[in-house]
């Protein structure tokens, strides 16, 4: 008898609630795409916002709705993009190109002097509010570490010399630091971009000479030396086009200020 009752009660309860649930599931049904959750799980979950949406889950929603390109998750890179394509049943679109952040300034504390002493909140954006920043060079890195603070992947650290350092292993190229830098000193470049000029100054050569020992003075020696016409000077600043550069290294030899850097070497050293 007891055994029967056990069956009856548990089974009965199961039936009643099962029935109720089945009814409710129909009555209160809410359309929801299960793929959103699947994709959210695939994402790195740093909520860095590099995709242009409020966070990983909202990116997932948009991507399922077809309102966001599948390869906009920068930190996830090709792998995540391919996974998303798989979930959505699309062809893989992502390129192998990896992006990383680099600091476009070498004017460390001892090389690029300050024009006045700044007191107050140790934050680059805050310092910019007072006479446009304390460094004599109005384009150089202020070195207060706003970029280090915001990095969601812990890839930036402040060096002894007052310039941030990028840990190329950890950097995903999400670009949060580049957005945070009030002077646009940090930029996201292609890791394939083997050579670059780490200076941000758009001042004329004369001004640069006065305010910094390692700024680009737009002498155009590199432009002339480059056999591939990969280097141009825009706004008093040499820029290397990664598509044309074949990494011959001639520009490095001729640069009077010895400031052209080889990212290939940077990565190798790391």
């Amino acid at each position: 008898m007891e055994l029967v009752m056990s069956f009856v009660i548990i089974g009965g309860l199961g039936l009643i609630f099962g029935g109720l649930l089945a009814y409710a599931a129909r009555r209160f049904a809410v359309e929801e795409d299960p793929r959103v959750e699947t994709i959210t799980d695939l994402l790195p979950g740093a909520n860095c916002g590099a995709c242009g949406f409020a966070g990983c889950s909202s990116f997932a929603e948009k991507v399922v709705a077809g309102q966001a390109p599948v390869d906009s998750c920068v930190p996830g890179g090709k792998k995540v993009s391919d996974n998303i394509c798989e979930v959505l049943g699309l062809e893989s679109v992502a390129s192998e190109d990896r992006k990383i952040a680099q600091v476009f300034c070498m004017g460390s504390k001892d090389i690029a002097p300050d024009k006045f002493e700044y007191q107050g909140v140790r934050d680059c954006k805050a310092a910019m509010m007072y006479s446009g920043g304390f460094k004599a060079c109005t384009y150089g890195c202020l070195g207060l570490g706003t970029c280090v603070e915001v990095c969601p992947f812990d890839a930036l650290s402040m060096g002894e010399n007052g310039l941030p350092k990028v840990d190329t292993d950890k950097c995903t190229g999400c670009g949060v630091c580049a957005k945070a830098c009030p002077r646009n000193v940090i930029r996201i470049i292609s890791a394939r971009n083997v050579k670059y000029v780490p200076c941000n100054s758009k001042d004329r050569g004369k001004v640069v000479r006065e305010s910094c020992e390692v700024g680009c003075i737009a002498c155009k020696a590199c432009v002339k030396a480059c056999p591939n016409e990969a280097i141009t000077v825009e706004n008093n600043l040499a820029v290397i086009d990664s598509a044309k550069c074949d990494s011959c290294g001639k520009c490095i030899e001729v640069c009077k200020r010895q400031i052209i850097k080889d990212l290939g070497k940077v990565l190798a050293v790391k």
Binding site: D114, K115, F116, E117, Y118, Q119, G120, V121, M129, Y130, S131, F134
Partner: peptide, 8 residues
């Protein structure tokens, strides 16, 4: 001399 600049 280098002047000091800070917020009010």
């Amino acid at each position: 001399r280098k002047l000091v600049v800070s917020s009010s």
